[in-house]
Computed example of a mutant assay.
Amino acid sequence: MVTLCCAPDWMKGGKSGADNTDWSRSALETAPDPDHYKDFAALAVTVAKRYPDVRHFIVWNEFKGFWNDSRARWDYEGYTELYNLVYKALKKVDEKNMVGGPYLVMDSVDPRQQENASTAVKGPWGAMDQRVLDAFDYWNRNKAGADFVVVDGSSYTKDDDLLPNEFAATDKLTAVGEWVRARTRGLPLWWAEYYVEPADGNDDRTGWSETRRVAVQATGMIAMARGGASSGFYWNPEEERGSDCAGCLWTPTSGGDGGTKLPMYDLVSRFGKEFPPGTTYETVPVAKDDVPNVRVLADDKAVLVVNTLDRAISAKVDGKRFELPAYGVKWLRR
Rank of each mutant, 00 (worst) to 15 (best):
V149T: 11
V149F: 12
V149R: 11
V150H: 06
V150L: 09
V151S: 03
V151T: 13
V151E: 00
D152Q: 05
D152M: 01
G153R: 05
G153W: 02
G153C: 06
G153S: 09
S154M: 12
S155F: 08
S155Y: 11
Y156I: 09
Y156C: 03
T157Y: 10
T157N: 03
K158D: 03
K158I: 14
D159Q: 15
D159P: 04
D159W: 12
D160A: 15
D160H: 15
D161E: 14
D161H: 13
D161A: 14
D161Y: 12
L162M: 12
L163H: 05
L163D: 07
P164R: 09
N165T: 06
N165L: 11
N165H: 09
E166H: 08
E166G: 13
E166D: 10
E166I: 11
A169I: 00
A169K: 08
A169H: 08
T170L: 03
T170W: 02
T170V: 10
T170E: 02
D171H: 11
D171W: 03
D171K: 11
K172R: 13
K172T: 00
K172W: 03
K172Y: 00
K172M: 10
L173F: 11
L173N: 05
T174Y: 02
T174V: 01
A175H: 11
A175D: 15
A175M: 07
A175Q: 11
A175V: 07
A175W: 03
V176P: 09
G177M: 05
G177A: 09
E178K: 15
W179C: 01
V180M: 04
V180T: 06
V180P: 02
V180W: 06
V180I: 15
R181N: 12
R181D: 02
R181C: 04
A182Y: 00
A182D: 04
R183T: 01
R183L: 02
R183F: 03
R183S: 02
R183W: 06
T184N: 09
R185L: 00
G186Y: 08
G186Q: 10
G186L: 10
L187R: 05
L187C: 07
P188G: 08
P188I: 09
P188N: 08
P188Q: 09
L189R: 02
W190S: 05
W190A: 09
W190T: 10
W190Q: 10
W191E: 01
A192M: 11
A192Q: 13
A192P: 03
E193I: 10
E193Y: 11
E193T: 09
E193W: 12
E193C: 12
E193K: 14
Y194M: 13
Y194A: 11
Y195S: 14
Y195G: 14
Y195W: 15
V196S: 10
V196C: 12
E197V: 15
